[in-house]
Design a binder for these strands. Sequence first.
RNA 1: GCGAAAGUGGCGAAAUUGGCAGACGCACCAGCCUUAGGAGCUGGCGGGGUAACCCGUAGGGGUUCAAGUCCCCUCUUUCGCACCA
Length: 626
Amino acid sequence: MQRNWIGRSEGTEVDFFLDDDGCEGFVTSHGKHERRGIKISVFTTRVDTIYGATSVQLAPEHPLTVEFCAQDAGLQSKVAALLDEQKKAREAGDVGAIEKHGVDTGKFAVNPYSGEKVPIWVANYILMDYGTGAIMSVPAHDERDYEFATKYGIAVRQVIEAAEKSDEAVVLPFCSEDGVLINSGEYSGMSCEAAQKKLQEVAAAGKFGEAKVTFRLKDWGVSRQRYWGTPIPMLYCENKCVDDGLVPVPDDQLPVLLPPQVEITQQGGSPLSRVAEFVNAKCPKCGGLARRETDTMDTFVDSSWYFYRYTNAKNDKQPFDPATAQYWFPIDQYIGGVEHAILHLIYSRYWTKVMRDLGLIKNDEPATRLFTQGMVIKDGAKMSKSKGNVVSPDDMVGRYGADATRMYALFAAPPDRDLDWQEDGVAGVSRFLGRVWRLTTKYSASARGAKETRGEVAGVELKLLRKLHQTVAKITLDFEGRWHFNTCIAAIMELVNELQGADAQLAAGEVRPVVMQELLRTLVLLLAPFAPFLSAELWEELGGEGAVLRQSWPKSDAALAAEDEQEIPVSVNGKLVSVVKVAAGADAKKIEAAAMADEKVQQRIEGKTLVKVIVVPGRAVNLVVK
RNA sequence: GCGAAAGUGGCGAAAUUGGCAGACGCACCAGCCUUAGGAGCUGGCGGGGUAACCCGUAGGGGUUCAAGUCCCCUCUUUCGCACCA
């Protein structure tokens, strides 16, 4: 997601030249490169289309635009209108919806490869803060350029044709990179990819361009003109005792605190600038008058590094001690919603890299792993304070208890998925916990004091212990490997169902206390992360030592968990026909024999020719017949 | 418009490497029990059909002995967005 957002874009920066008196005698790339005059750098991902460039377009705020305007009042008013449109679109947050407008400056630029003169335009959709603030316009091979050129009658020249020739007429713009250059001088006939590489080399050799990587990360302003932010600890010395008068507040005067009494006047500007006691200060360098910076830092600044402070919260000399931070960082696991995946996480990563470069920390990244949790959905919409559909769990805790509420939330869906909040299910979880309580307390007396060793097990003891150890294995895997707590809880429910199904045998004393103890104590340990309060009670009830949450996680005994038989589905021509039982670990031959011996299978293949038999041991059998 | 994620019973969901679709739970139905409860126990519960069987994972194609799972196209929903040269 970040890869997309940061928007790494590989392309070429190419210098066009302003065609004016200073540029006479310009010679194309074929000959010598005597370049004078003013450069207009453009960034393009499609340098292979450069022979199709029929204009150069500048952002309204481009320095050259400003210069042209200074010489031409008529142009200036038109450009001002373009800039206004761009600003309005930006404020509305949708530059994409802008209607393309532009104005011809009457000036020309020279293509450094071909020497061709092309008109220079200013357009409202060119942004000064991306790339170089100028583009070469290739209408034949770019949607936007095509739209613009047809609107203003700018030439359209095709320089790429499809790699595979077809009889159909070419529809412009042709934007595919799967093509071959035409009308491109000595580069004609090359593939797009090869041409890009070659043209970059030529530009680099001729010193009028180079391969370049551009990023689209938005430059987020640090400072805000409002009261409720962290003060920026800088002073402006009135005497200009240093070059620009800018003096940092000395360490021993940090932190700069906000004044407690501030009038919010809604006049605009920072409210702090109207608080004289705050603004007026002494220059720490020369002792003269100084003014404090009155902008405050945006909250993104704080959220980019606050967690480093957690490693060293009582340090009153520094934000944190580098050695302490190095001990704790990077964070092992970051958990957050998708809304954190871009802005906050990009800024905090960026901040970490800056602190690393300053030598404050050693880690390159703030966290090693990211887990993106789902949203809570209520009545079809994301649950949020701003939508006002937030449900407090307090009600549910009051009615069913914290254990049932917590366990229900974990049971309803895996955490990486959106959770549809429906309260009906909590009653079921509550009933389940009641069953666990009754089952455990019913047999706790005998289980509590068991001291003998287990020894060999068989019959119902084996059946129950097998299920127990299978459950431990499953939950351990789902818990550690996948964080699928819903299936962990389902597995505990299955275990309890199995125990309850054997209640008659338990009541008849067919299971020894030592086995009962293992069954119930392990059950409680498995339950503890999901229902800690109930588990603590039951742990005590079963005579467990210490706190249940301090116990080590149970280990699955693989030998006990292993089944001695397994069921293998048998299909004929891909359709399930029967299920056969074989000894666990049976080889393909034995499984095939069992499948062929099955009555239903025989009915299906009777009178047909067996073409192929596929046996996947432990998994499936498929018979292909004709 | 672009980008990302998702689509499985009446509902929330399972199916870890392609190998018995619907585990577990909710709701519902039937029965039992009872100093009648927001309780407990037993059984049923995708659709069609008396049945044998047939159909079924948004829709349509494909790969494969075998597809919810892999590939292509379409549709729908949610989230994010910046005409990015």
